[in-house]
């Protein structure tokens, strides 16, 4: 389990990084290395050049305005989970972070790396979708912005084009409540299936808006619009959450793997949605099976 030979470059600006990516067609960006290095050592990947972006200071920046949180692609999982201002602005980030791997991996792994890697069971892509985030991409053709839903395209597949770099992720500061639930074999393992939800309550106490996202249930995180629709305009209650949860599971065609069959995921997906909603809306009775 030793990596095949590769060249190594450590640019200090985004422009240099883009030049390197342009010059070497099969170059790979190295961020936290927590997915890439195992792939190299298992010889599942053999890029000719690693472009280490850890020296590009601006990629680690965090900025917060009253309406927007902007996380540089290199911001580590650990910072996201421990910086109260970040979780204050987008609570889903704080709720999801403890479920990602273990301390040492969270200290190195980056949000941009997780999004670019695009594991269908990863937390950040689902959180970005539920929190309505937008990806800030830099590439040879200039910068562009891609909403989360158009960014995750499938297993290990994103909208990033050759030579492009994910530079930052922009989140609208949350106005509502959030809930997060997942099942994993052990704490810190990738989820078998999970749900990330956001709900905005109107002045009348009814759901003004909701986003319901499942992950680990498809080849990418997916919004469950029928469930969102069911919630909209309704007063939250256990029965409503059950209905929304059932709708969220309709039409699912989840994958099977060693740890969970498709049947398992189909059965547990609505449970995760119900529990995430119950937590978001502080309705503990809705956590229980009917």
């Amino acid at each position: 389990m030793k990596a095949p030979p590769f060249a190594y470059a450590a640019p200090s600006t985004i422009a240099e990084a883009l030049a390197l990516l342009a010059a070497h067609e099969d170059a790979k960006v190295l961020a936290g290395g927590q997915s890439l290095m195992p792939a190299l050592n298992l010889r599942l990947a053999a890029p000719s050049v690693l472009v280490d972006i850890n020296g590009i200071a601006e990629l680690s920046e965090v900025s917060l305005t009253p309406t927007e949180l902007r996380l540089g692609a290199l911001v580590r999982h650990k910072r996201i989970g421990t910086d109260a201002a970040i979780a204050g602005a987008v609570p889903l980030l704080g709720l999801a972070c403890p479920h990602i791997a273990h301390g040492p991996i969270r200290s190195r792994g980056t949000i941009g790396g997780s999004l670019s890697h695009a594991d269908p069971a990863a937390e950040w892509p689902a959180v970005c979708l539920a929190a309505d985030a937008v990806m800030e991409i830099r590439g040879p053709a200039g910068p562009r912005h891609v909403p989360a839903e158009a960014f995750s395209l499938g297993v290990f597949t994103t909208a990033l084009r050759p030579g492009e770099l994910l530079a930052a992720i922009r989140f609208p500061v949350a106005r509502g409540r959030a809930g997060f639930a997942e099942v994993a074999r052990r704490h810190g393992d990738f989820a078998m299936v999970g749900a990330a939800v956001t709900v905005e309550l109107g002045p009348d106490g009814r759901c003004a808006d909701a986003r319901v996202v499942l992950f680990g249930a498809s080849d990418r995180p997916i919004r469950r619009r029928a469930a969102e629709e069911r919630l909209r305009g309704q007063a939250p209650g256990a029965a409503l959450l059950r209905e929304a949860a059932s709708l969220a599971a309709e039409g699912l065609d989840p994958p099977s793997d060693l740890h969970a069959s498709a049947e398992y995921r189909r059965r547990v997906a609505p449970v995760m949605v119900r529990r995430a909603l119950a937590d978001a809306l502080s309705l503990p009775e809705a956590r229980l099976a009917a």
Binding site: A249, Y264, V268
Partner: peptide, 9 residues
């Protein structure tokens, strides 16, 4: 879960 009878969500 396969052994446990399914109840509605």
């Amino acid at each position: 879960l396969r052994l446990i009878p399914e109840t509605p969500a």
